[in-house]
Structure formats: structure tokens, C-alpha cells
């Protein structure tokens, strides 16, 4: 217990204190300059009626879903590709892992240039017949662009996690399956996938948590635009609180975001537990 004490104290002061304060604030109107005034559920009613909140909510869900799915698929794909016997695998892995080591701000600044209408990405895609894509200014492309950066940034990390999972599967299983005449697809479907289930669960939950908190990428790369195309809840919270000085309202949006993440995590837990049961 003594070992946990500093941590408990730390979390009380720096996390739970502020968190409860924020939750309390969500029932007040507070512009940071006059003392907060109690307004009950007014902030919640008001944000639910606000089209920008609804747009940001939809964007957040799309972003969470998009990045989680692609991070998981790309991460798993890369891990399977690395997990073959042969030279150079480790070097490739280390190289890809570098995307994770780059400071996030550098990531944003670099990609902003790469996405320019005449930038590197379009120079690559041009010869493939794509023409000019306005990545950051076309409302249909801006969110995919942000998801692309997210996957580029995080997939290699989860690749390593998947790889660790793959390495725990005893090679004898595969040998036995091969003797039974199972081809690669069946081996993946009936052996790798079920055994990787706990790892996949971990990846999905953590990737969703990460994406729910995304802030700097849309903040620096698109500023939430064009229009509201990439305005996610965390950005809306920041703007509402610090640009519009509506801390109570910002707190209410945070509580909603907190609830969403909580529900998502719990739902994922249930889903995965059930599928684990089916597999076993």
C-alpha cells in the first residue's frame, strides 16, 4: 500500500481534482473572469441543440472508427509481413517504428507540406492518374487525410505489439496445422486470428483511446476546416473554453466525450469477450 501512496496522491491532486472540478463546472456558466454560476443542465441541453457540436461529434466518431480500423488492419498486416523468416525484417521494423519517434509537431508540420496541392503526395499520385487532390481543403478529403497521418504515425507501434503477440504462438501449432493440410488462409483464420484475439483487443481499445484524444493533428494541420470537416470534439472543447471563454460549456462537451470513450471501451470489452468465447 505504501508503494501506491505517491501515485494515489498524485492522481488525486493532478487528475481527479481537476476532473471533478471540470465535471462540476459543466453545470455552471463560467467565462473564467466572473465566478461560475450554477445553471443545472443548461449547457448539456444547449450543446445537444448546437449543429456544430453534432458535426464535431459525428467527426469524432468517424475519426475514431476510421483510425482504429485502419491502425488495426495495417498494424496486423505489417506484423504478418515482418513475421516471415528472412533477412532484413528487423531493419524494416526499426525503420517503420521511426514514425512513432518523430515529435508529433514535426509530424504535423511535415505532412502539411506533403498535402499541399502541388506537394509530394500529389506528385506521387499524379502519374497514377489521380490528378490534383486538394487534401486539406476539400471537405471530402480532409478527414481521410488526417486519418492517413494517424495511421502512418501509430500503425508501426501496433505492428510491434501484434508482432509480440505472434511470437508467443508456439511454432508447433503451425507445424501440426501444416501436416493436417491447412493452407495459409485457413491457418490464419483458425489459428493465428483466435490466438491473437487478446492482442487485437488491446490494440483496438488503445487505438480508440488514442484517437478519442487526438488534438494537435487537426489543430495544426487543418485548423478544423474546411468548414467543420475536421473539427473533432477535443478541438471544440479547446475553442469553446479558450477562444470563446465558455468553460462551463467546454466542460459539458468534455463530459460527453468522456462518456463516449467509456461506453466505447466497455462495448469493445463485451464484444471481445464474447468473440473470445466463440473461438475457444
Amino acid at each position: 500500500m505504501a508503494f501506491v501512496m505517491p501515485t494515489i496522491l498524485f492522481f488525486l491532486v493532478f487528475k481527479y481534482g481537476p476532473m471533478l472540478w471540470a465535471m462540476g463546472l459543466s453545470f455552471t456558466t463560467y467565462d473564467m473572469m466572473k465566478p461560475p454560476r450554477w445553471v443545472g443542465l443548461e449547457n448539456y441541453e444547449s450543446i445537444l441543440r448546437d449543429p456544430i457540436f453534432r458535426e464535431a461529434l459525428a467527426n469524432t466518431l468517424v475519426y475514431i472508427a476510421g483510425s482504429t480500423i485502419f491502425i488495426t488492419l495495417v498494424g496486423l498486416g505489417l506484423a504478418l509481413a515482418i513475421n516471415t523468416r528472412g533477412p532484413g525484417r528487423r531493419a524494416c521494423m526499426s525503420a517503420m517504428f521511426l514514425t512513432n519517434i518523430m515529435p508529433i509537431l514535426a509530424v504535423c508540420l511535415v505532412w502539411r507540406f506533403l498535402f499541399h496541392p502541388h506537394g509530394l503526395l500529389n506528385q506521387f499520385l499524379g502519374p497514377l492518374g489521380f490528378g490534383r487532390l486538394d487534401w486539406l481543403t476539400d471537405s471530402a478529403l480532409a478527414m481521410p487525410a488526417i486519418i492517413l497521418v494517424t495511421v502512418w504515425r501509430f500503425a508501426p507501434y501496433f505492428m510491434v505489439v501484434f508482432l509480440a503477440g505472434l511470437l508467443t504462438i508456439p511454432p508447433e501449432y503451425y507445424e501440426a496445422a501444416e501436416i493436417d493440410g491447412a493452407n495459409a488462409v485457413r491457418r490464419f483464420r483458425y489459428l493465428t486470428l483466435p490466438l491473437l484475439m487478446p492482442v487485437t483487443f488491446f490494440v483496438v481499445v488503445v487505438a480508440a483511446l488514442l484517437s478519442a484524444r487526438i488534438f494537435l493533428m487537426p489543430f495544426i494541420i487543418t485548423g478544423g476546416g474546411p468548414g467543420n470537416a475536421t473539427r473533432v470534439l477535443s478541438m471544440l472543447i479547446y475553442e469553446t473554453g479558450f477562444s470563446y471563454m465558455k468553460m462551463g460549456r467546454a466542460a459539458a462537451i468534455s463530459v460527453v466525450l468522456f462518456a463516449i470513450v467509456m461506453v466505447l471501451t466497455l462495448a469493445q470489452m463485451r464484444l471481445f469477450m464474447r468473440s473470445e468465447e466463440e473461438y475457444s
Binding site: K15, I237, F258
Partner: peptide
């Protein structure tokens, strides 16, 4: 605490 958006706890922190 991992689920808490950071932006709103800036002021109390």
C-alpha cells in the same frame, strides 16, 4: 483518467 480529454482540465490543473 486515460479517457479524460486533457483540454478542459488545463485550467484546474
Amino acid at each position: 483518467t486515460l479517457m479524460l480529454p486533457l483540454e478542459v482540465t488545463l485550467v484546474p490543473t
